[in-house]
Design a protein around this nucleic acid. Structure first.
Lengths: 151, 151
DNA sequence: ATAAATTAAATTGCACACAATTTAATTGTG
DNA sequence: CACAATTAAATTGTGTGCAATTTAATTTAT
């Protein structure tokens, strides 16, 4: 009985649909697909949109600052920011005080894009077909989990 | 006042930390990083581990079946499965009944790997520092969201 | 029965993610 | 002051994800 129970437990722990990690992974990818057509109108990919969210909150930040807000490293951000610079959304410039740092600042076109992005959150909430309080609660639970995982 | 309220609402809707999508995205990436050292011992990447979870539940499935279980397409799965075949974990073979299909079957080494993977869920739950019932509840909420998004 | 439509994988091309390394600048220590 | 340690970006290489297309097999409709 004892070993039988252990086997059952082990098996159920390896079931795909019992995995929180897979729920997060597949739902995050589904979210990205939902954003895709909305962001295509703005000429942004989903990670680029995240960069814009940071910059619309606080312009002129270092790459490392973007990285700590988004949990991404320079290996991801450097090429991504170069593409966004080529698209005319932002400018990359070495900091004068600390030559190691590269500051990222929105261009006028980048700032203006915020107005066109304003409708996106509403579209997403509608697609989620879920009461706003539940979405807020779910967001907080997932953030709390992230905090424990990155601690 | 009316336009002021609208502006405030729009702004808060674009705050990074109010985005469920970003919570899911960043937490999913954090989860993947948590798995990385555990899976490295087994010679698996995280998406490859997901393939193994499916195959340990049901061996000998078509690529399309894997895709619908994992919400991934052949563009992702084909090269991934070729790497797993090269690693000796599974075999790819054209179906006799339907020559369009490619069946994926575990090798003996692939089946045996399940025993070594058995300890992984426990490690992850421990790292999440979260009561099991809460993890189960969160999993179900995220799955429900995925269902609404993919509907 | 056969042409058109559909389906299943594979392929191609692009954009992430990230570990590991490199380069360059700054900080800390004796 | 010199020099080791640290820090910030960039680079390199591997492995996803996915849209769009291609190839080949099967199904459907006529």
């Amino acid at each position: 009985m004892g070993s039988n129970k252990k086997t059952l437990t082990t098996d159920s722990a390896l079931l795909l649909d019992n995995q929180l990690c897979f729920a997060l992974y597949s739902t995050s990818l589904a979210m990205t697909k939902l954003y895709k057509p909305l962001l295509e109108e703005l000429g942004l990919t989903y990670p680029q949109y995240l960069v814009m969210l940071v910059l619309w909150e606080q312009d002129d930040v270092a790459v490392s600052e973007l990285g700590s807000r988004l949990y991404l490293d320079s290996g991801t951000l450097t090429p991504l920011l170069k593409r966004m610079e080529a698209a005319g959304l932002l400018a990359r410039s070495r900091s004068a005080e600390d030559e190691r740092r590269v500051n990222i600042a929105l261009t006028e076109a980048g700032r203006k894009l915020k107005a066109r992005a304003a409708r996106i959150p509403g579209c997403v909430v509608r697609a989620a077909q879920c009461p706003l309080p539940e979405l807020v609660s779910l967001t907080q639970q997932v953030q709390a989990l992230r905090q424990r995982l990155t601690a």
